[in-house]
Protein backbone atom coordinates (compact mmCIF):
# COMPACT_ATOMS: atom_id res chain seq x y z
CA UNK A 1 0.00 0.00 0.00
CA UNK A 2 2.66 2.52 -0.97
CA UNK A 3 0.78 5.49 -2.34
CA UNK A 4 -2.46 5.53 -4.24
CA UNK A 5 -2.28 4.73 -7.96
CA UNK A 6 -4.04 7.81 -9.30
CA UNK A 7 -3.49 6.93 -12.91
CA UNK A 8 -5.26 3.62 -12.46
CA UNK A 9 -8.03 5.31 -10.49
CA UNK A 10 -8.64 7.80 -13.31
CA UNK A 11 -8.64 4.99 -15.83
CA UNK A 12 -11.26 3.04 -13.89
CA UNK A 13 -13.27 6.20 -13.34
CA UNK A 14 -13.33 7.11 -17.04
CA UNK A 15 -14.17 3.54 -17.99
CA UNK A 16 -17.03 3.65 -15.50
CA UNK A 17 -18.33 7.00 -16.71
CA UNK A 18 -18.30 5.83 -20.31
CA UNK A 19 -20.19 2.64 -19.51
CA UNK A 20 -22.54 4.84 -17.51
CA UNK A 21 -23.33 6.66 -20.74
CA UNK A 22 -24.54 3.36 -22.13
CA UNK A 23 -26.87 2.97 -19.15
CA UNK A 24 -28.16 6.50 -19.66
CA UNK A 25 -28.92 5.67 -23.25
CA UNK A 26 -31.33 2.95 -22.17
CA UNK A 27 -32.74 5.07 -19.37
CA UNK A 28 -33.61 7.92 -21.76
CA UNK A 29 -36.05 5.64 -23.57
CA UNK A 30 -37.84 5.06 -20.27
CA UNK A 31 -37.94 8.72 -19.37
CA UNK A 32 -39.48 9.72 -22.71
CA UNK A 33 -42.42 7.39 -22.21
CA UNK A 34 -42.79 8.00 -18.49
CA UNK A 35 -42.85 11.75 -18.95
CA UNK A 36 -45.58 11.80 -21.53
CA UNK A 37 -47.78 8.88 -20.57
CA UNK A 38 -46.90 8.05 -16.97
CA UNK A 39 -46.02 4.48 -17.89
CA UNK A 40 -42.89 2.83 -16.59
CA UNK A 41 -42.18 0.89 -19.74
CA UNK A 42 -40.49 -2.32 -18.70
CA UNK A 43 -40.56 -3.43 -22.33
CA UNK A 44 -37.85 -0.91 -23.24
CA UNK A 45 -35.25 -3.67 -22.95
CA UNK A 46 -37.31 -5.98 -25.12
CA UNK A 47 -37.69 -3.20 -27.70
CA UNK A 48 -33.94 -2.78 -27.63
CA UNK A 49 -33.48 -6.50 -28.25
CA UNK A 50 -36.10 -6.50 -30.99
CA UNK A 51 -34.47 -3.56 -32.78
CA UNK A 52 -30.94 -4.91 -32.54
CA UNK A 53 -31.97 -8.41 -33.60
CA UNK A 54 -33.97 -7.15 -36.56
CA UNK A 55 -31.11 -4.94 -37.70
CA UNK A 56 -28.47 -7.64 -37.40
CA UNK A 57 -30.58 -10.22 -39.15
CA UNK A 58 -31.25 -7.84 -42.02
CA UNK A 59 -27.56 -7.01 -42.39
CA UNK A 60 -26.67 -10.70 -42.30
CA UNK A 61 -29.13 -11.28 -45.15
CA UNK A 62 -27.22 -8.81 -47.30
CA UNK A 63 -29.27 -5.66 -46.77
CA UNK A 64 -27.03 -2.56 -46.88
CA UNK A 65 -26.30 -0.90 -43.57
CA UNK A 66 -28.26 2.31 -44.16
CA UNK A 67 -31.27 0.53 -45.62
CA UNK A 68 -31.33 -1.92 -42.71
CA UNK A 69 -31.27 1.03 -40.35
CA UNK A 70 -34.25 2.60 -42.09
CA UNK A 71 -36.23 -0.64 -42.24
CA UNK A 72 -35.59 -1.35 -38.56
CA UNK A 73 -36.64 2.14 -37.63
CA UNK A 74 -39.82 1.70 -39.67
CA UNK A 75 -40.50 -1.58 -37.87
CA UNK A 76 -40.03 0.11 -34.50
CA UNK A 77 -42.45 2.86 -35.50
CA UNK A 78 -45.04 0.29 -36.51
CA UNK A 79 -44.54 -1.51 -33.19
CA UNK A 80 -44.88 1.77 -31.31
CA UNK A 81 -48.15 2.57 -33.03
CA UNK A 82 -49.42 -0.97 -32.49
CA UNK A 83 -48.60 -0.80 -28.79
CA UNK A 84 -50.55 2.44 -28.46
CA UNK A 85 -53.52 0.94 -30.31
CA UNK A 86 -53.67 -2.51 -28.80
CA UNK A 87 -52.28 -2.08 -25.30
CA UNK A 88 -52.36 1.52 -24.13
CA UNK A 89 -55.64 2.73 -25.55
CA UNK A 90 -57.79 0.04 -23.93
CA UNK A 91 -56.00 0.69 -20.65
CA UNK A 92 -56.52 4.46 -20.61
CA UNK A 93 -57.26 5.82 -17.14
CA UNK A 94 -56.12 2.68 -15.39
CA UNK A 95 -53.63 2.82 -12.55
CA UNK A 96 -49.96 3.31 -13.44
CA UNK A 97 -49.21 -0.04 -11.82
CA UNK A 98 -51.64 -1.79 -14.17
CA UNK A 99 -49.93 -0.14 -17.11
CA UNK A 100 -46.56 -1.23 -15.77
CA UNK A 101 -47.74 -4.82 -15.55
CA UNK A 102 -49.04 -4.57 -19.10
CA UNK A 103 -45.57 -3.55 -20.24
CA UNK A 104 -44.20 -6.58 -18.41
CA UNK A 105 -46.49 -8.69 -20.56
CA UNK A 106 -45.42 -6.67 -23.56
CA UNK A 107 -41.77 -7.39 -22.89
CA UNK A 108 -42.53 -11.11 -22.86
CA UNK A 109 -44.32 -10.82 -26.20
CA UNK A 110 -41.55 -8.76 -27.81
CA UNK A 111 -38.76 -11.02 -26.52
CA UNK A 112 -40.61 -14.10 -27.66
CA UNK A 113 -41.49 -12.64 -31.05
CA UNK A 114 -37.99 -11.33 -31.75
CA UNK A 115 -36.46 -14.72 -31.13
CA UNK A 116 -39.23 -16.66 -32.80
CA UNK A 117 -38.74 -14.63 -35.98
CA UNK A 118 -34.96 -14.33 -36.01
CA UNK A 119 -33.81 -17.32 -33.98
CA UNK A 120 -32.02 -17.53 -30.67
CA UNK A 121 -28.39 -17.74 -31.76
CA UNK A 122 -25.92 -15.03 -30.81
CA UNK A 123 -25.11 -12.58 -33.58
CA UNK A 124 -21.99 -10.50 -33.73
CA UNK A 125 -22.52 -6.87 -34.65
CA UNK A 126 -19.75 -4.81 -36.19
CA UNK A 127 -20.40 -1.11 -36.40
CA UNK A 128 -17.03 -0.52 -38.01
CA UNK A 129 -15.39 1.02 -34.97
CA UNK A 130 -12.22 -0.59 -33.68
CA UNK A 131 -12.28 -1.26 -30.00
CA UNK A 132 -8.63 -0.36 -29.51
CA UNK A 133 -7.87 1.66 -26.43
CA UNK A 134 -5.75 4.76 -26.93
CA UNK A 135 -3.71 6.68 -24.47
CA UNK A 136 -4.27 10.19 -23.16
CA UNK A 137 -1.70 11.33 -20.61
CA UNK A 138 -0.96 7.78 -19.57
CA UNK A 139 -4.63 6.84 -19.21
CA UNK A 140 -6.11 4.21 -21.49
CA UNK A 141 -9.49 5.03 -22.98
CA UNK A 142 -11.61 2.70 -25.08
CA UNK A 143 -12.31 4.14 -28.50
CA UNK A 144 -15.61 2.35 -28.74
CA UNK A 145 -16.82 3.74 -25.42
CA UNK A 146 -15.91 7.21 -26.57
CA UNK A 147 -17.83 6.69 -29.78
CA UNK A 148 -20.85 5.45 -27.81
CA UNK A 149 -20.67 8.49 -25.59
CA UNK A 150 -20.58 10.75 -28.64
CA UNK A 151 -23.63 9.02 -30.11
CA UNK A 152 -25.47 9.36 -26.80
CA UNK A 153 -24.58 13.05 -26.64
CA UNK A 154 -25.81 13.54 -30.21
CA UNK A 155 -29.04 11.74 -29.38
CA UNK A 156 -29.67 13.85 -26.30
CA UNK A 157 -28.91 17.00 -28.29
CA UNK A 158 -31.30 15.90 -31.02
CA UNK A 159 -34.03 15.14 -28.49
CA UNK A 160 -33.65 18.44 -26.68
CA UNK A 161 -33.75 20.41 -29.93
CA UNK A 162 -36.75 18.34 -31.00
CA UNK A 163 -38.57 19.00 -27.76
CA UNK A 164 -37.72 22.68 -27.62
CA UNK A 165 -38.14 23.89 -31.18
CA UNK A 166 -40.73 21.76 -32.96
CA UNK A 167 -44.50 21.82 -32.66
CA UNK A 168 -44.60 18.10 -31.93
CA UNK A 169 -42.04 18.65 -29.22
CA UNK A 170 -44.13 21.41 -27.74
CA UNK A 171 -47.13 19.08 -27.75
CA UNK A 172 -45.04 16.44 -25.96
CA UNK A 173 -44.11 18.89 -23.27
CA UNK A 174 -47.71 20.00 -22.90
CA UNK A 175 -48.85 16.42 -22.44
CA UNK A 176 -46.05 15.75 -19.98
CA UNK A 177 -47.05 18.81 -18.01
CA UNK A 178 -50.78 18.25 -17.78
CA UNK A 179 -52.66 15.62 -19.75
CA UNK A 180 -56.11 17.06 -19.20
CA UNK A 181 -55.08 20.59 -20.12
CA UNK A 182 -53.38 19.23 -23.23
CA UNK A 183 -56.53 17.35 -24.14
CA UNK A 184 -58.61 20.46 -23.50
CA UNK A 185 -56.61 22.61 -25.93
CA UNK A 186 -57.16 20.00 -28.59
CA UNK A 187 -54.01 17.90 -28.61
CA UNK A 188 -54.63 14.37 -29.76
CA UNK A 189 -53.30 12.20 -27.00
CA UNK A 190 -53.37 8.88 -28.87
CA UNK A 191 -51.35 10.34 -31.72
CA UNK A 192 -48.84 11.85 -29.32
CA UNK A 193 -48.49 8.61 -27.43
CA UNK A 194 -47.92 6.70 -30.66
CA UNK A 195 -45.22 9.22 -31.61
CA UNK A 196 -43.58 8.96 -28.21
CA UNK A 197 -43.45 5.19 -28.47
CA UNK A 198 -41.98 5.51 -31.93
CA UNK A 199 -39.29 7.89 -30.63
CA UNK A 200 -38.64 5.47 -27.77
CA UNK A 201 -38.25 2.84 -30.50
CA UNK A 202 -35.59 5.02 -32.12
CA UNK A 203 -33.76 5.34 -28.81
CA UNK A 204 -34.07 1.58 -28.38
CA UNK A 205 -32.56 1.09 -31.84
CA UNK A 206 -29.57 3.29 -31.11
CA UNK A 207 -29.02 1.76 -27.68
CA UNK A 208 -29.56 -1.71 -29.09
CA UNK A 209 -26.90 -1.24 -31.75
CA UNK A 210 -24.34 0.09 -29.29
CA UNK A 211 -25.05 -2.53 -26.64
CA UNK A 212 -25.28 -5.21 -29.32
CA UNK A 213 -21.86 -4.29 -30.66
CA UNK A 214 -20.53 -4.55 -27.13
CA UNK A 215 -22.21 -7.74 -25.89
CA UNK A 216 -23.26 -9.47 -29.07
CA UNK A 217 -26.91 -9.47 -30.12
CA UNK A 218 -28.68 -12.09 -28.01
CA UNK A 219 -31.39 -12.54 -25.44
CA UNK A 220 -29.36 -11.07 -22.58
CA UNK A 221 -29.53 -7.74 -24.41
CA UNK A 222 -33.03 -7.24 -23.07
CA UNK A 223 -31.60 -7.49 -19.56
CA UNK A 224 -29.81 -4.15 -19.89
CA UNK A 225 -33.18 -2.84 -18.78
CA UNK A 226 -32.17 -4.01 -15.32
CA UNK A 227 -29.09 -1.80 -15.52
CA UNK A 228 -31.20 1.18 -16.46
CA UNK A 229 -33.69 0.86 -13.60
CA UNK A 230 -31.37 1.94 -10.77
CA UNK A 231 -30.24 4.78 -13.02
CA UNK A 232 -33.87 5.85 -13.29
CA UNK A 233 -34.45 5.54 -9.58
CA UNK A 234 -31.40 7.66 -8.95
CA UNK A 235 -32.14 10.30 -11.55
CA UNK A 236 -35.90 10.38 -11.25
CA UNK A 237 -38.23 8.68 -13.71
CA UNK A 238 -39.19 11.90 -15.43
CA UNK A 239 -35.92 13.69 -16.03
CA UNK A 240 -33.59 13.33 -19.01
CA UNK A 241 -30.73 15.20 -17.27
CA UNK A 242 -31.42 12.88 -14.33
CA UNK A 243 -31.05 9.85 -16.56
CA UNK A 244 -27.69 11.10 -17.80
CA UNK A 245 -26.28 12.14 -14.43
CA UNK A 246 -27.71 8.99 -12.84
CA UNK A 247 -26.12 6.84 -15.53
CA UNK A 248 -22.72 8.48 -15.03
CA UNK A 249 -22.93 8.14 -11.26
CA UNK A 250 -24.00 4.51 -11.37
CA UNK A 251 -21.43 3.62 -14.02
CA UNK A 252 -18.59 5.24 -12.10
CA UNK A 253 -19.45 3.96 -8.61
CA UNK A 254 -20.16 0.49 -9.92
CA UNK A 255 -16.76 0.17 -11.59
CA UNK A 256 -14.88 1.76 -8.71
CA UNK A 257 -16.65 -0.47 -6.20
CA UNK A 258 -15.90 -3.58 -8.22
CA UNK A 259 -12.23 -2.68 -8.52
CA UNK A 260 -11.57 -1.35 -5.02
CA UNK A 261 -13.95 -3.06 -2.62
CA UNK A 262 -15.31 -5.91 -4.75
CA UNK A 263 -12.61 -8.30 -3.58
CA UNK A 264 -13.86 -8.09 -0.02
CA UNK A 265 -17.21 -9.43 -1.16
CA UNK A 266 -15.80 -12.10 -3.42
CA UNK A 267 -16.37 -10.12 -6.63
CA UNK A 268 -19.31 -10.04 -8.98
CA UNK A 269 -20.92 -7.19 -7.11
CA UNK A 270 -22.05 -5.54 -10.36
CA UNK A 271 -25.38 -7.35 -10.34
CA UNK A 272 -26.65 -5.57 -7.24
CA UNK A 273 -24.31 -2.72 -6.39
CA UNK A 274 -26.16 -0.21 -8.55
CA UNK A 275 -29.38 -1.00 -6.69
CA UNK A 276 -27.76 -0.48 -3.32
CA UNK A 277 -26.35 2.88 -4.42
CA UNK A 278 -29.75 3.92 -5.74
CA UNK A 279 -31.49 2.75 -2.57
CA UNK A 280 -29.05 4.47 -0.25
CA UNK A 281 -29.53 7.63 -2.22
CA UNK A 282 -33.30 7.35 -2.21
CA UNK A 283 -33.45 7.07 1.54
CA UNK A 284 -32.06 10.61 1.57
CA UNK A 285 -33.95 12.00 -1.43
CA UNK A 286 -37.01 9.88 -2.26
CA UNK A 287 -37.64 11.49 -5.64
CA UNK A 288 -34.17 11.09 -7.09
CA UNK A 289 -31.78 13.83 -8.11
CA UNK A 290 -33.96 15.65 -10.60
CA UNK A 291 -37.29 13.92 -10.19
CA UNK A 292 -40.41 15.91 -9.49
CA UNK A 293 -41.45 15.91 -5.88
CA UNK A 294 -44.75 14.26 -6.66
CA UNK A 295 -44.15 10.53 -6.58
CA UNK A 296 -47.39 9.57 -4.90
CA UNK A 297 -49.00 8.30 -8.05
CA UNK A 298 -49.95 4.79 -7.12
Amino acid sequence: MSGFDWQFFVEVLIGGLLSGVMYSLVAIGFVLIYKTSGVLNFAQGAMLLFAALTFVSLVERGVPFALALIITFAVMVVIGIAIERVVLRPLTNRSPMTLFMATLGLSYILEGAAQLIWGTQVHGLDLGIDDVPFEVGGVLISQFDLFAAAIAAALVLFLSVFFRYTRVGLAFRAVADDQFAALAVGLRLPRIWATVWAVAGLVALVAGLLWGARLGVQFSLSLVVLKALPVLVLGGFDSIPGAIVGGLLIGATEKLAEVYIGEYFGGGTESWFAYVVALAFLLIRPSGIFGQKLVERV
Partner: peptide, 21 residues
Protein backbone atom coordinates in the same frame (compact mmCIF):
# COMPACT_ATOMS: atom_id res chain seq x y z
CA UNK B 1 -41.21 3.26 4.55
CA UNK B 2 -39.98 6.04 2.30
CA UNK B 3 -40.67 4.89 -1.23
CA UNK B 4 -43.87 4.29 -3.10
CA UNK B 5 -45.04 2.89 -6.38
CA UNK B 6 -42.43 2.32 -9.05
CA UNK B 7 -39.57 3.42 -6.88
CA UNK B 8 -40.48 0.71 -4.39
CA UNK B 9 -41.05 -1.88 -7.11
CA UNK B 10 -37.58 -1.22 -8.50
CA UNK B 11 -36.00 -1.31 -5.06
CA UNK B 12 -37.42 -4.79 -4.43
CA UNK B 13 -35.28 -5.89 -7.36
CA UNK B 14 -32.35 -5.29 -5.03
CA UNK B 15 -33.53 -8.29 -3.00
CA UNK B 16 -33.74 -10.36 -6.14
CA UNK B 17 -30.18 -9.70 -7.26
CA UNK B 18 -28.55 -9.57 -3.87
CA UNK B 19 -29.94 -12.88 -2.61
CA UNK B 20 -29.14 -14.71 -5.83
CA UNK B 21 -25.62 -13.32 -5.80
Amino acid sequence: LRLKGFYLAVSTLAAQFFVQW
